[in-house]
Amino acid sequence: MQTVKRLLVISDMHGQINAFNALLDKINYQSEEDLLFLLGDYVDRGQNPKEVIKKARALEKTGAITLKGNHEDMMEKALIGQNTEAVSHWAANGGAQTLSSYGLSIKNVYKDVQNGTLSLPDELQDDLEWIQRLNVYAETEHYFFVHAGVDPEKELKDTDEATFLWIRTPFFEGYQGDKTVIFGHTPTMNLHETSDVFFGKNNIIGIDGGCVFGGQLNCLELPSKTTYCVKEKSNNRFTR
């Protein structure tokens, strides 16, 4: 039986494939020995969302646990639901960069949705089907992994998917559970005025370093609580 030496957690890559690869190199990720959790938001805003999804899918095939983020949720609603309002919402949150990485323009997609004539490239369609299959949380004996957080007032079975993908303040302020919740979604700069991993006093750990906003891409190692990060420089290289 395989023995896992480390649990590793990364979130909110947002199309930044160079940072993602640099961080994986820095932590010396070994799929045979480590269990990697990816907490969503592979797409939008960064330079190459398509490549981040490709990397996440490859990592999944070698054992990584891949979860859905709210940006995948927006992408799914825009392209599968084919609703112009959903397309506009996605566009306002970085959807144009995602479509561009697949060779499409947000304006043309909006028009095609409006006219009922949207046809997607096979590669994008395949990635969308993968997104639809993603789980919204995972858990071990001691940890709960999720993109945004949990509703402290509800049981998991009574919680809708949107909560796991979008919740903020009620979770930060109200969670008092026994399991440590590891989450992304909210840049840690908004939680403790630094891009470093946030260790909350109420058993929550936020790892979104806001890399796409000029912060850093973080990785949390468990159970040691060791943290790693890469920071983008102006020349598009990364500090280690």
Results as ranks from 00 to 15, higher is better:
residue 119 S to W: 10
residue 143 Y to I: 02
residue 168 R to M: 14
residue 154 K to R: 12
residue 105 S to W: 00
residue 177 G to R: 07
residue 102 Y to D: 00
residue 146 V to N: 04
residue 104 L to A: 10
residue 101 S to G: 10
residue 150 V to Q: 02
residue 118 L to K: 10
residue 98 T to Y: 07
residue 150 V to P: 00
residue 100 S to Y: 09
residue 98 T to G: 10
residue 97 Q to E: 11
residue 169 T to M: 14
residue 119 S to H: 13
residue 113 V to F: 11
residue 127 D to E: 05
residue 117 T to K: 11
residue 140 T to A: 08
residue 81 G to H: 07
residue 155 E to R: 11
residue 118 L to I: 03
residue 140 T to R: 06
residue 114 Q to V: 04
residue 85 E to H: 14
residue 177 G to N: 09
residue 136 V to M: 06
residue 87 V to C: 12
residue 145 F to C: 07
residue 91 A to E: 01
residue 180 T to D: 06
residue 101 S to Q: 07
residue 95 G to A: 07
residue 174 G to Y: 02
residue 172 F to C: 09
residue 105 S to F: 01
residue 137 Y to S: 03
residue 119 S to T: 13
residue 90 W to L: 09
residue 180 T to R: 12
residue 120 L to Q: 10
residue 130 W to T: 01
residue 161 E to M: 15
residue 169 T to I: 07
residue 166 W to P: 10
residue 124 L to N: 12
residue 129 E to R: 14
residue 161 E to S: 15
residue 142 H to R: 14
residue 120 L to I: 02
residue 99 L to P: 03
residue 147 H to K: 01
residue 119 S to G: 10
residue 135 N to P: 00
residue 91 A to I: 04
residue 151 D to G: 06
residue 108 N to A: 12
residue 149 G to D: 00
residue 75 M to C: 12
residue 158 D to N: 11
residue 100 S to F: 10
residue 115 N to G: 11
residue 160 D to Y: 08
residue 171 F to M: 08
residue 176 Q to K: 12
residue 104 L to I: 00
residue 111 K to A: 14
residue 156 L to H: 05
residue 164 F to D: 01
residue 157 K to V: 04
residue 132 Q to N: 14
residue 168 R to V: 07
residue 116 G to P: 04
residue 83 N to I: 02
residue 133 R to S: 15
residue 124 L to G: 13
residue 106 I to G: 12
residue 115 N to F: 13
residue 161 E to K: 15
residue 167 I to D: 06
residue 103 G to N: 05
residue 123 E to P: 07
residue 156 L to A: 09
residue 147 H to L: 07
residue 177 G to D: 04
residue 168 R to P: 10
residue 76 E to W: 14
residue 133 R to M: 06
residue 165 L to A: 04
residue 95 G to E: 02
residue 170 P to H: 07
residue 180 T to G: 12
residue 90 W to V: 00
residue 78 A to F: 12
residue 87 V to P: 03
residue 138 A to Q: 01
residue 136 V to T: 08
residue 145 F to M: 07
residue 126 D to Y: 13
residue 79 L to P: 07
residue 108 N to L: 14
residue 143 Y to V: 02
residue 175 Y to M: 11
residue 109 V to E: 01
residue 154 K to Q: 10
residue 150 V to M: 11
residue 172 F to Q: 10
